[in-house]
Design a protein around this nucleic acid. Structure first.
Ligand SMILES: [Mn+2]
Ligand SMILES: [Mn+2]
Ligand SMILES: [Mn+2]
Ligand SMILES: [Mn+2]
Lengths: 158, 158
DNA sequence: TCTGATTGTTAGCATTGTCTAACTTTATGC
DNA sequence: GCATAAAGTTAGACAATGCTAACAATCAGA
């Protein structure tokens, strides 16, 4: 039934010190931790960025609009907005539209900046607009300030 | 208690057709959906990539090593491996080391390729090694094949 | 001003991903 | 070969993120 040779613990223990050694294990773990942290912030970032945009373009941010633009169902938005309110990024009253707190507005500004730098960079690399927008939406949450600076420099130089 | 002016639904409804119009709402929703899909694949990708690397470098992939490199606790790994097995990416027996299925190996190869292209690209942009590794770990899951091609071209050209 | 359509919330479910505490199995070293 | 150390699993908790179905509030038009 089981055709894989069952190796016992420590079987091939000879470390085989090939490529990456030293203490990259720690650094790697930190990198992964950083990615997990970024992932936990993604949702809030996309929400506040979108809310700021809706307020700017339409005068207000309604849950139904947020849901449509994010491509999720209204109850998902309700729950997410509750979390954002709990985190102090927005204020809201039942059945009413959504407002950003100062903190939320600051985060939105920061996200919009990142988004635009990444997007402009991808476009300046020669990527088509649609793919650029798609990729930027994911990448924006995972670029360090340092990388962002390089992206901005490249985009303005080209 | 509530100092925000409570706007009623449709208050500032004048559409204010500023910048982005047309049907970008749909496209945006698709972009967000794509990011959500990518996010749901992130974990499996990092696991199989790491497992392949451990097998290559050390002859086997043990949960304790996986946990150390990812910076998570052993039970987290156990549960994740159960999911990967259920998805057909790995095979395993209790208390034994982990093996990749053909499908898992194929995914690992693909992830490694993406990871390396992104990493080389960031380095060729002038980013320091540590930040590059950090950012690559997050970005790799959100670059389209098209973007990847541009990254590869830039890196080899520079 | 009703009344039907639209919008929003609630309740309840499923999955993922993380943890700690406690337990079991395997490996190691004497 | 046994005792201890190390590795791995199980159980159970919890938060986040999504969904559907059902209900409630608001809006808009006749
Ligand atoms: Mn985004
Ligand atoms: Mn964005
Ligand atoms: Mn990664
Ligand atoms: Mn990777």
């Amino acid at each position: 039934m089981c055709d894989t040779k069952l190796m016992t613990q420590r079987d091939l223990a000879t470390p085989t010190p090939s490529a990456n050694d030293g203490r990259p294990a720690d650094l790697r773990a930190e990198a992964f931790q950083g990615v997990r942290d970024a992932r936990s912030r993604e949702l809030a970032e996309d929400y506040v960025e979108l809310i700021a945009e809706l307020i700017h373009d339409h005068g207000e941010a309604r849950p139904v609009e947020i849901a449509a633009r994010l491509g999720v169902r209204p109850p998902t938005v309700t729950k997410a907005l509750d979390r954002l309110a709990r985190e102090g990024l927005i204020t809201r009253a039942k059945y009413r539209s959504v407002f950003l707190t100062d903190e939320g507005r600051a985060l939105a500004r920061e996200c919009r900046r990142r988004h635009e730098i990444v997007l402009r960079f991808l476009l300046s690399l020669g990527l088509d607009a649609e793919t650029a927008e798609r990729d930027a939406e994911g990448i924006e949450h995972h670029v360090s300030e340092r990388t962002l600076a390089l992206f901005a420099a490249y985009a303005s130089k080209s």
